[in-house]
Design a protein around this nucleic acid. Structure first.
Lengths: 214, 214, 214, 214
DNA sequence: GATGAATGAGTTTTCATTCAT
DNA sequence: CATGAATGAAAACTCATTCAT
């Protein structure tokens, strides 16, 4: 059931191939938005970096706002589904996998994805805070698409007795809230290029066992 | 050793009491910055909401940028020290207190503090992401002032055998990274007015024991 | 009963005194709009002619559209009421006046008025055609304010047996339609500075007796 | 003596038949110009409505200005000559026709013509006011072509004693000025689709006999 | 003959800031 | 201390027009 929303609308428009100049616009915009933020980046600046006229930007995207969405929406579309599919389905069917193993795979997988598009990730995170519009499109999208899958996954692991008897939705919020903050602080706040394996392992241990001495 | 930086500079200026109009400016600015972000708020708008002339704002604060810092810096100065002093010193000396107890006290204490000034908190978080300048003033400040105290605290609890033998700096990053994300998501992203006790307890349990079944 | 509409709204705003620069804006705008039309006049041009910054125009009037209305609306407010009051009331009470005499007085009176503000008159006529908004404010205003008075006047002269037994509303439309066209063609289309008495007399004769030979 | 002017120039070019796309351009342009005015209609909009590329418009017409003239000039060429020929010559030779009869025929004839191309008529009237260029081409054209014919006509009726002994040029200006205003107010200002017979008769009576009681 | 891509030169509008009073 | 008036610079956006394909 394809709802009529910003996401679907924007995706349907820019499926065609881009010219060289159009590609330069996209790259310049992502780079500048990531660096200085959407509001502090002028279309004149984007045009200059992309070495095109401002008019070309507006011919393509109509408004600066639409340009932003045209960058972010496809990224979201790719980020979450692939998160769900690539990692989840495979693991869930593997009888002897552990949640810890899933977490490890998941983290490495998503970190790689973000590393490959760090700037868009930064733009997304920075602007979700500002643009109510984005937030209201983005959060439900995540909820509807991702939450059900993860819920099933967690339930499966709980049934195997691997996870504590905390309500699934609480586990989801705690674990993925933590992971979200973990990623965002590293890739957005500190602008790191990657996360060392060691740090990943520490995070996994923290999630599984907390910090209490046993 | 008082470094010459924005923080100290600004604090030294505005120690005097505010007039009624100045107070209105501050309130209007905080409210608007929290709602729409610094970049998307014009000085004209602030003046209108505060019912003063734009000229008055500039007479007082010189630049819009300085106005922002004049709001945020005192807040930071208050947020972290009080965090350190009120909660920590007391707890650390209480021989039979637990880290869990400390965490509980700490969370409630900080949540109350944020609730009382939610809008400034929102401004701070939103702008730290955008303004490199702020980030570069803010993070070291936190590091220098807070980290040593918390380090001592954690070490104390580790010596009592309450916490796992994870290097202190790792524990710090994990726990306070999690708590930061916890607060920010509730108070900034979802603009909640408070956090239910139940949710706080879940967070504490998560931090202490993770999600593994025992 | 002061209806809430554009007319009243705009009048209420600009009742205060204008500075020299503000007056220059008004004059430049009227002159340029009259000459080249609203759409073909840029705010940059107005600013240049008025020797002020464009920003000053927008600080005062908010939008170019509002500037136009701020010029036209007070003119309309003055044009029609004075038309009604000065000429009509006096004549209607004068027992031995004739409709022809009224027409003569009326024409001379209105021609003088237009001559004193020809450019605004030109702007008004040119833009009423284009701006539905103006048309929808302007026409009812005329209808409500002017038509009843003229109706009473015509009826009075009909009762004296001076005018043909044509329904009053028809006479109104024919006579004032003709006069309107008469004025507009001279002052707008041909940009004449005045209308010779001779031509006025011919118009009066035409209105009274048509062109048939007797 | 074919003067070298815009009219003749444009007519000489576009005598060829229009392709389907060209026709769509013409229709879109007329419709949009009539509705919003030339200045407020962009070539992009025309292209969109016509479902052709903007480039096609410019390939055909060179400039937007030329497009406007290409619409208006042929219309003028048709409007006035047919006005002269169809109605006049026939009537003038008919010994027992009256001026009133001529007027009636003429009005019905021109009203029908306008009804069939109302939008171009609207464009013509609206733009004559704005474009000095058009005015300076249009008015002499009318004068040279129409005035002599009508002068002859009026003189003929005057000789028959049907019309008052007013100088012919005055009669012309009064009568056709009135009729022009009559048409323009109905078809342009009020955008009516036709004029009821009753109203036409009232206009004729007004022209012939004025409003004086006899 | 038709068009997608591109743009230089404008357009209206906004904004932080200054200054005389 | 307060502000009305003013603005230079830049913002987003528009537009008629060109040109290679």
């Amino acid at each position: 059931m394809p709802k009529h929303n910003l996401f679907n609308e924007i995706l349907s428009i820019h499926s065609t191939k881009r010219t060289v100049k159009q590609q330069r616009i996209v790259e310049a915009a992502i780079s500048l938005f990531a660096d200085k933020g959407y509001s502090n980046t002028s279309t004149a600046e984007i045009a200059k970096v992309a070495e095109v006229s401002e008019a070309s930007i507006f011919k393509q995207y109509g408004t600066k706002d639409h340009l932003l969405l045209s960058l972010i929406v496809p990224y979201i579309r790719e980020f979450f589904p692939s998160m769900a599919n690539e990692a989840l389905d495979q693991i869930i069917s593997n009888g002897d996998s552990t949640f810890e193993g899933f977490l490890r795979t998941f983290l490495h997988n998503r970190i790689e994805f973000i590393r490959g598009n760090k700037e868009i990730f930064q733009v997304l995170i920075k602007e979700v805070i500002y643009k109510e519009e984005l937030k209201h499109e983005f959060l439900p999208y995540v909820s509807d698409l991702i939450v059900p899958r993860l819920t099933k996954l967690i339930e499966a692991f709980q049934e195997r007795g691997e996870l504590a008897d905390i309500p699934v939705d609480k586990i989801l919020k705690l674990v993925f809230g933590f992971i979200g903050g973990f990623m965002i602080s590293r890739f957005v706040l500190f602008n790191m290029d990657s996360i060392p394996d060691e740090e990943i392992e520490e995070a996994i241990t923290f999630v599984m066992d907390g910090i209490r001495h046993r």
